[in-house]
Design a protein around this nucleic acid. Structure first.
Length: 677
DNA sequence: GAGCACTGC
């Protein structure tokens, strides 16, 4: 394999771009000691301060293209505040795709404005809100994009806000894309509303064109673009001269070469998944060399979700593992594929955050240009849409097919999602949302199937257990992944699981884990709890989060108590009452589970393999399932989800009685002759 | 004997 040699541009890599004298000058580290007002004025966006405000006066939508470090996220809301956009009790809301970003940006802005967080500047994310209780007091509000959609369920026109800023729009999360369509509609009804779309990449024209469509009266929803230079250091991009036959090995060799020949600076290596990361970590440390240099091997998380200071070298094999949902089968596949050019640009940028850097792409320049797609398909085109469509129905959008998607999903994907919602009883023959069932389901922060289980649990007398199951399925599995490859670790994990496992399957096992965890958490100290979790190979963070989620779901569940339940009691008394529990009747819990997951049923064939009842597809229990490890295979099961990796795996599986399937979803199985359970 | 991209309400 031809490979980049230390200290030369070849033979391995071809230098694409040299040091750029005109590139933005590095911020003097001393700047952080300057007064905040001086720091703010030193940000690249400051120069655009006036043109930005002018653009917003004269246009309905403003698309800001700004590289990392331009200061747009923290500064733009403050400019709007100073310019009077928050006068009269109105507010500016800014969305972020991630919780931490919403919280930290709000804290920074409050600091710069010299106010206490939760007064003029606030944030709202799930489980955590710091906004003034006084109406109209919080002028700048930072929220997650999903939360803004939830707010629209209570206030569809977002009447409190004068400006909505959708940040990190280039990431194209489902929530962001849905907000695009919803806001376009809202802006037709609210001529005073302004929209700012902030993106770090060059999709600006697509965003602008989307909002520049004429409305009913022929008025233009005029949109314009403002480009803001970033404060990024130059990054030299280098390519392989000949393709690598093993990118994992190539990445390790590249890291070693950098270590041997390049000046100090940490190395960030992008890998598609955990398995590759383990391999590279071992390979990269093989020959013990003098000197210490940090080598970070990470997946996509390092592209957007975490900031790593001190990285000067990026090694990018240009591979990524992405989920693709196939609406024809309802199966999500994790596919290792080449990254997009946009993604590769983001990755390279990670080398230039604090000083000029280098990015080594482990592909040839020709392959890079010809094989990599310009952009990653947006999430809305790669995911199950049933939850999203239910949300849109709840927001009063009847004609989903005509919803203005920035990137429309296929008709097949929409049809599959609507079919599931219909089979769950969330929408009717006319595809209208049902009340109270569909409307209650839409309010729950759960997949439609789990929402159905929770709403139905009153009928089965197992609300307490349904809440636990829904919360546990909302977090990553509670069992720690065994670290290391030794058989000993696996054995330890297996025996820990055995302490909670039941032959009924994973759902009841999760209830056992959760109850044991709560007993332990209530009885001992934080340290003791951590120790207990470690002993039982349980992930403490997942369980803590599950408890938090269950608390939130419980509040919803009480709101959705059917009218005939304790309806003679005032609400306050109902809240004091315990929730209906199945006690030791686990059959009630499993029947309740079937009421939401009947479409995910599989039966044991005579050849010893499981086939889905619906389509006859062969699937295997995921190795993390208790049913894959203990007991004998039950005749019928329902599963939470199915994922294709190396095989088609069913995750979170429980044994059920086939009669329940017919009893609880006769319509579903009657329409699929030949697949009668 | 076998396995797991990343968020979010």
């Amino acid at each position: 394999m031809a490979f980049w040699k230390p200290g030369t541009a070849g033979p391995g890599f071809v230098q694409e771009r040299g040091g750029d004298a005109e590139a933005p000058v590095l911020v003097d580290p001393k700047l952080s000691h300057l007064p905040l007002s001086k720091q703010r004025q030193a940000l690249p966006i400051y120069q655009y301060h006036r043109s930005l405000l002018y653009a917003l006066e004269t246009h309905r939508t403003l698309v800001i293209v700004g590289e990392t470090g331009s200061g747009k996220t923290t500064q733009v809301p403050q400019y709007l505040h100073q310019a009077g956009w928050t006068a009269g009790g109105r507010a500016v809301v800014c969305t972020q795709p991630r919780r931490v970003a919403a919280v930290t940006v709000a804290a920074r802005v409050a600091q710069e404005m010299g106010v206490e967080l939760g007064e003029e500047v606030g944030y709202a994310v799930r489980f955590d809100e710091k906004c003034s209780k006084e109406v109209g007091r919080t002028a700048l509000k930072f929220v997650t994009d999903g939360l803004l959609i939830r707010e629209m369920m209570l206030d569809p026109l977002l009447s409190r806000y004068s400006v909505v800023m959708l940040d990190e729009a280039h990431e194209r999360t489902v929530h962001n894309d849905i907000l695009f369509g919803l806001l376009k509609k809202v802006m037709r009804q609210r001529s005073d509303l302004r929209l700012i779309v902030a993106s770090a990449t060059l999709d600006a024209e697509e965003f602008r064109d989307f909002f520049e469509t004429a409305d009913k009266e022929g008025d233009k929803l005029t949109a314009t673009i403002l480009s803001v230079q970033g404060r990024q250091h130059p990054v030299d991009i280098l390519y392989l001269e000949a393709p690598a036959d093993n990118y994992v090995r190539a990445a390790a060799e590249a890291a070693l070469s950098i270590h041997e020949t390049e000046p100090p600076g940490d190395i960030l290596i992008f890998m598609p998944g955990a398995e590759e990361i383990d391999t590279v970590q071992m390979a990269v440390f093989e020959p013990a060399k003098p000197g210490i240099r940090k080598v970070i091997v990470a997946t996509n998380v390092a592209e957007t979700s975490i900031t790593l200071d001190g990285v000067k070298y990026v090694v990018d094999p240009c591979f990524v593992r992405l989920p693709f949902y196939d609406p024809a089968t309802g199966v999500e596949s994790l596919v290792t594929t080449v990254t997009s050019k946009a993604s590769a640009t983001q990755r390279a940028g990670r080398a230039g955050r604090t000083s000029p850097g280098k990015c080594l792409r482990l592909v040839t320049e020709t392959d890079f240009n010809s094989l990599l797609p310009a952009r990653t398909p947006p999430e809305v085109q790669r995911t199950d849409l049933s939850g999203t469509l239910l949300l849109l129905k709840a927001l009063g959008l009847h004609d989903i097919v005509r919803f203005d998607f920035l990137s429309p999903p296929t008709a097949e994907a929409l049809a599959r999602a609507l079919e599931l919602l219909y089979s769950l009883g969330a929408i009717d023959d006319s595809a209208d949302i049902t009340r109270p069932l569909g409307a209650s389901m839409a309010e729950l922060p759960l997949s439609p199937q789990l929402a159905k289980v929770l709403v139905a649990s009153w009928r089965f007398g197992c609300v307490a257990e349904a809440l636990t199951v829904a919360a546990m399925l909302s977090v990553r599995g509670p069992f720690e992944r065994p670290r290391g490859v030794g058989a000993e670790a696996k054995q330890r994990q297996r025996s820990a699981m055995a302490a909670f496992a039941t032959l009924e399957g994973d759902h009841i096992t999760y209830i056992n884990v959760y109850n044991a965890y709560c007993d332990e958490a209530d009885g001992g100290s934080v340290d003791e709890l951590r120790e207990w979790c470690a002993e039982h190979c349980l992930d403490a963070r997942s369980l803590r989060r599950a408890r938090e989620i269950r608390g939130q779901l419980e509040r919803y569940a009480r709101l959705h108590a059917p009218p005939d339940h304790d309806n003679d009691l005032p609400v306050s008394k109902q809240q004091l009452r315990g929730l209906p529990s199945a006690g030791s009747d686990m059959k009630a819990v499993l029947r309740c589970l079937v009421s939401g997951f009947f479409s995910n049923a599989a039966r044991l064939s005579s050849d010893g393999r499981y086939r889905t009842v619906r389509e006859g597809t062969v699937l295997t229990f995921h190795p993390s399932s208790v049913l894959a490890q203990f007991g004998s295979p039950p005749e019928y099961v329902v599963y939470h989800e199915v994922v294709r990796t190396t095989q088609l795996f069913a995750r979170d599986v429980s044994a059920v009685d086939p009669r329940w399937l017919l009893e609880l979803a006769p319509h579903f199985f009657a329409t699929r002759g030949g697949h009668q359970p």
